[in-house]
Design a binder for these strands. Structure first.
Lengths: 327, 327
DNA sequence: TTGAAAGCGCTAACAT
DNA sequence: ATGTTAGCGCTTTCAA
């Protein structure tokens, strides 16, 4: 930066200004500085800047899984919304573990990020303390909460599960079932299940029959779990799968078993993943605002960075029941 | 750090050492320092450290798509392999654009990363120059090259396409087809297509009939493309899809058309995605070492960071043809 | 609108 | 094995 300043015949302070807030520098000077920057292919050292200003152009984001299409879409939306601002996402993977999340928050904080985004509203005590103490915007996502740490952007997982139950009942289901995965650690899937059960009870239905797999949702797992459910509860005629991927496995399992969908078995998924519209029959599913969550967070953060005072702290982006052939 | 040093009764330099290379500090002193760190909940400022040492504990990674399961798995493997080392991944999304890649490299470099990982071996001139000038390990991935910039970890996409062609021919195919997406910008898919065509020609077959979609591979797109192919070339009896997701759409399309798989139509995918084993019939597919690429890169980088001299620069992790019911 | 000066909180030679 | 010292390359008052 000193070299640039010398070449442009100005002080380093002015170069710094020209780079960070171009409008605070007179146009002719800005032009000279830009020319010098180009000439020397100068690139500023963000760590020096971060040290001097005690904040960095980073946003820490913690997601529970790298390979989950939902969070990938959210990250994608956030990144797109932040494009051109110079902010860099620091992505951490908690692997659905609260302790891992806590450690990640600690190491992300060491970068003095400008904001931090976490998945869900349930955190360990230590994590909570760090988030409350961090003097930066904190966004929780993919759930809803009455009193967020700072801001929450998501939708009601409970309501989504309930909507699925009501829809299946509307379509003439007599015995409900649920196929899940990772319910111990994926709180959001747990909430959907709770909503499903609550709506079933409210309609006077018996508690849904359930089959679970301990690991991450996969199509093979979905097929197996449905198979178990069919064996244990042959009267089940409508199933909510915790995830479209499991529903996909379930579709093929039903084909193999000769249970026609939707006549013998109604199937509802979650996610409206790309393939949901392409299956035969096409899959009825709950569509979460996956990319929109990221896009909205980007918007909120941009405003906060510009100094706008937060007026709203809870953003319910809703979900959609996409009715297709499988129900 | 000064506070910790004071509380532990040592110099700041010793605290710094205890934190970075615990073995260079005597055990009793280390214990005192650890206690002081705990007591003050001290967390070191990585930007100050980065500034002082002119390198940061980050690794820049550029992938073409955030929502592609292949790269997600690679990132996951890399992250897992780097766990406990304190390195943070800075992930950039080039969206399959060379210019975007170049810009990303520039902004990642501003973080003085300890290494940089890019997808593929084809880069813009500017990108190439920056990568060659960067005095850090540079890893190219998901392809192979005779003379990598520094190190390449991947497999031969061309060989994978050729293997698919030979397999389909072995299974009695008489007329080959190819269904692709994004071939203009996804060089790896382009290489597979080239390998497929080359092997077809080598076996004395006519050039494969093709149908493409301009956008990212989706199941709906796969169904549509196969449908076009069927209309334009009703004699096609064996198709390679650029991607398992497209193959999934193709399976359902064949079901709808009443073309039994594999008797009327043999179908091969790419990716061995989770659902490939669950479809009906199960999908024959090419399995890339997606997680292994990340894991191996982590291993290579850890060695390089420890100062080991690189002995090998080309890592061919191979691929596997997973034969299932669809062929 | 621009410049001078004083750090930001560490790390790395070097000395002990 | 530990301490001393001199920066790393910026940003940010403050003054001009």
């Amino acid at each position: 930066m000193a070299d640039v300043a010398r070449l442009a015949g100005v002080s380093p302070a002015t170069v710094s200004r020209a780079l960070r807030e171009p409008h605070a520098v007179s146009p002719p000077m800005r032009a000279r500085i830009d020319a010098a920057v180009d000439r020397l292919s100068y690139r500023r050292n963000l760590m020096a800047g971060g040290l001097a200003s005690a904040r960095s152009m980073t946003i820490g984001v913690i997601i529970p899984s790298m390979t989950n299409a939902f969070f990938a879409a959210t990250i994608d939306g956030m990144e797109a919304g932040l494009a051109g601002t110079g902010y860099q996402l620091l992505i951490g993977n908690s692997r659905y573990g609260e302790d891992t999340e806590e450690r990640l928050i600690a190491s992300l904080l060491a970068w003095s990020p400008a904001a931090i985004v976490v998945t869900g509203c349930r955190h360990s005590r230590g994590a909570l303390r760090m988030l409350l103490d961090a003097k930066i915007p904190v966004v929780e996502m993919w759930e809803l909460s009455d009193r967020p740490i700072d801001t929450v952007v998501g939708f009601s997982q409970h309501a989504a599960g309930a909507a699925a139950a009501r829809h299946l009942i509307d379509r003439g289901a007599t015995r409900l079932g649920f196929v899940g995965a990772l319910l111990g650690s994926d709180y959001r899937a747990g909430d959907r299940r709770a909503g499903f059960r609550a709506a079933a009870a409210a309609a006077g239905f018996a508690p849904p029959a359930e089959a679970h797999m301990a690991e991450q949702a996969t199509a093979v797992g979905g097929a197996k779990a449905l198979s178990q459910l069919m064996d244990a509860h042959p009267d089940v005629d409508a199933v909510l799968c915790s995830n479209d991927v499991m529903a996909l496995g379930a579709i093929f399992e039903a084909q193999r078993r000769g249970w026609p969908i939707p006549h013998r078995l109604k199937l509802c998924g979650f996610g409206d993943m790309d393939f949901a519209a392409a299956t035969e029959p096409a899959l009825t599913t709950l569509r979460p605002p996956r990319r929109a969550i990221g896009a909205r967070i980007a918007e909120i953060l941009r405003e906060r960075f510009e100094g706008t005072q937060a007026t709203q702290t809870v953003f319910d982006l809703g979900f959609e029941l996409v009715v297709r052939g499988s129900t």
